[in-house]
Every structure is written in structure tokens, then in C-alpha cells.
């Protein structure tokens, strides 16, 4: 059941050096291409990065929260085309979520790196930094990067008691 996957999932940022098998990468590619999008416009594109030099450079995308990519076996850079669809943020985030759940099911650990609205440094956005690194054309924007690999840390799933049930309302705001 999907719920059992959700019960144990956590963000994993430490990975074993072992590469991800080609069949698994092929499945990940298939799954992101199956990601639904608004009006089926598919405004996304994906760059699958396995080159260690590029992974190390992707790790420098942001001052905080991207360094772990250096140790990832794979980073999937998710690009959106705002001219193709105005709700590309949603479309790209759906693909990122699907990618993480498929990775989890295949025994991989993963973590999201937010790029949209994030800075590389004082004068450069994280997006501009990655655009330059991966030769991304100007009409595309970088939404996020999902890093993954075989996990080298274990974390227990969140306890049901810690879930924020106060955020659920029935029929009307404030009603439970």
C-alpha cells in the first residue's frame, strides 16, 4: 500500500558510493515522463546527472541545503517552461514528488533541493548558477533538483501522533 511507503519515508541526504543500476534509472525516467500536467502540456524537462564532477558542482548551488548532492549517485534537475504553461511550478512539483516516491519504492533514498526563489550567493540566483553549469536555454527555468542514491543513513518514519491533525477541517474552515 502507498500508505506504508509514506509511513516510512524520510528525506535521505547521505548515500553509499554505489551507482544506481541502469534499469532503475530507466524506470525513474519513465515515471517522470508519466507525471500528469495541467492540460497535458507537459511543460517540464529533466536532466539526469550522474557525472561526479557535475554532482559536486551542483552541491554548490546554494549556501545551505544543497551540499549533500556531492555524495549523490544521481541528481535529477527539473526544468519548467513558463511560456508553455503558467502553472509550471505545480507541474514540476508533481514530477519531483513522483520521482521521490518511485525512488523510495526501489530502495533508494532521496531529498529535494529547492532552486526556485533560492540564491547561490550575493548576486547570483541558484537557478542562474545551474543554468550556466548545465547549459540550459534561457526559456527554461530550474524548479528543483532531486538528489538520490542508496541510503547510508537510516531514519525512522514520523510517528502518527506527531502528524498535524489540527490542519484538517470538514466541509468548512474551522469545522472538525
Amino acid at each position: 500500500m502507498l500508505l506504508s511507503l509514506l509511513k516510512k519515508r524520510r528525506s535521505i541526504r547521505k548515500y553509499q558510493p554505489r551507482p544506481i543500476e541502469k534499469e532503475k534509472i530507466d524506470t525513474l525516467m519513465e515515471c517522470v515522463l508519466r507525471s500528469p500536467s495541467s492540460r497535458n502540456l507537459n511543460p517540464w524537462q529533466y536532466i539526469f546527472v550522474t557525472d561526479p564532477g557535475l554532482l559536486a558542482k551542483l552541491g554548490k548551488s546554494k549556501e545551505h541545503g544543497s551540499a549533500f548532492l556531492k555524495g549523490a549517485a544521481l541528481a535529477v534537475v527539473i526544468l519548467g517552461d513558463p511560456e508553455r504553461c503558467d502553472v509550471w511550478i505545480e507541474d514540476c512539483s508533481i514530477a519531483a514528488t513522483i520521482l521521490q516516491l518511485v525512488a523510495e519504492e526501489m530502495g533508494l533514498g532521496s531529498c529535494w533541493v529547492q532552486i526556485r526563489l533560492r540564491k547561490h550567493g550575493n548576486n547570483l540566483s541558484a537557478e542562474e548558477y545551474i543554468r550556466d553549469l548545465l547549459q540550459i536555454p534561457d526559456n527554461l527555468v530550474v524548479a528543483s533538483v532531486i538528489g538520490m542514491g542508496y541510503p547510508d543513513e537510516t531514519k525512522s518514519g514520523h510517528n502518527q501522533e506527531t502528524l498535524q491533525y489540527d490542519k484538517i477541517f470538514l466541509n468548512f474552515f474551522g469545522q472538525r
Binding site: 519513465e30 517522470v32 515522463l33 524537462q45 529533466y46 550522474t50 557535475l54 526544468l79 548545465l134 547549459q135
Partner: peptide, 16 residues
């Protein structure tokens, strides 16, 4: 959706 209908040109390897 069939596998062959997927827009596979939207996947790139290492660089765009």
C-alpha cells in the same frame, strides 16, 4: 498511456 507515447526527448543526460 502507452510507453511509446511518452515524450522521451524531454530527458537529458548530464547536460542539456
Amino acid at each position: 498511456r502507452s510507453r511509446t507515447s511518452l515524450p522521451s526527448r524531454k530527458v537529458h543526460k548530464n547536460v542539456y
